[in-house]
Design a protein around this nucleic acid. Structure first.
Lengths: 140, 140
DNA sequence: CTAGACTCTGTAGCAAACTAGAGGGTTTAG
DNA sequence: CTAAACCCTCTAGTTTGCTACAGAGTCTAG
């Protein structure tokens, strides 16, 4: 019987900070693959760690696991032409660009609001109440 | 009996593109308020439209409705000192700043990957398969 | 060799943010 | 005046991304 090698699921979990259950969930979505040992255990290559980190990173930036799967996993679904993948990548990049723009604008809004509000409340008194809702005429 | 005036829930829904059910849900979370007519209908001021747009905007940028509630709704919960609100706002701004940084880095990663991959596939043939997973050694 | 740690496959449950539908009243256009 | 279009409340279901068992096998340190 072939000796199973590689990282066990708990190792990957420790190295990535992602729960064992989550890793199995990723696999069920086809985002992560592993070899099975004779004992039925999953064994991972070291690259799996990077892949999990990639997933977490994309996720932290608002991509759904389905999105991540689009990017990572396309070629498993069959003979997909490269043009498709290219435009998909381009889409995600464009999406990020748009979001970055919006975030900067929104941040500017919040800053403006913070400063405007600081002016009208130069020295907040203890027990002072903040009329917040009325002061949020931020345009979209 | 006072004549009810203002926008009905369907009007707000139309003007914001947000479903009627979602608006009622926002109200249940205390993110949106309305007057009730003698008929029991909700009536909204025109500012409600802006508020809903604000909610959608914040939400699109990754804030939870609870976060939005923190920002919008604090003063309804009682006598909350201004310092709290200030630091809350400052937190959100800082959060945005961090996310913007991460997004730009991630975008750069994706672009680099796109270009690197374009090099190795200068003229994709029809039917060409994309070995995507192997090619994602993006570092975190 | 055995206790404890680790793994497996289920199934179930949770939180967020809604959507859908039942059952029933209200408004409004023609 | 009436039918269609709205609105109400309340309950239940959906999706996403997990976590938490239960019940059972595997591995490992002493």
């Amino acid at each position: 019987m072939a000796v199973a090698t590689g990282l066990k699921i708990g190792d990957v979990a420790k190295q990535t900070g992602v729960a064992v259950g989550a890793l199995r969930y990723y696999e069920s979505l086809g985002l992560l693959s592993s070899e099975r040992g004779d004992n039925g255990y999953r064994y991972y290559s070291p690259e799996a760690v990077h892949q999990v980190q990639f997933i977490k990173k994309a996720q932290a930036l608002g991509f759904s696991l389905e999105d991540v799967g689009d990017v990572l996993n396309v070629h498993q679904r069959g003979d997909v032409p490269c043009g498709f993948v290219r435009s998909l990548l381009q889409d995600k990049i464009q999406q990020l660009e748009t979001q970055i723009q919006q975030m900067m604008a929104f941040k500017a809004d919040l800053e403006q609001y913070r400063d405007r509000w600081a002016e009208s409340h130069p020295r907040p008194q203890p027990g002072d109440i903040c009329p917040l809702i009325e002061a949020v005429p931020l345009t979209v």
